[in-house]
Amino acid sequence: MRARVLVRPKEGILDPQGEAVERALPALGFEGVSDVRIGRMVELEIDDPAQLEEISGKLLANPLVEDFEVQLLDEPAQ
């Protein structure tokens, strides 16, 4: 099964990457953008989706500083 794991910096934790992007946008003429937060997206093929929580908590995310969200995708593998 195809699955997607979204990893985000926990709320309240400074995200310098997001800040840098936020500051770059006005230079391109985009105004009114705030609170930019940058995380990570992992897509994978997995036989047993029940393992995804453990995989995410042990390796894909560091639960001390990141939240993760598992999404199961319906489309078959390419």
């Binding site: 400074l14 310098p16 840098a20 560091n62 001390l64």
Partner: peptide, 10 residues
């Protein structure tokens, strides 16, 4: 304990 995150000064 803890974690090391990207520098605040980017």
């Amino acid at each position: 304990p803890g974690a090391l995150l990207p520098n605040a000064n980017r």
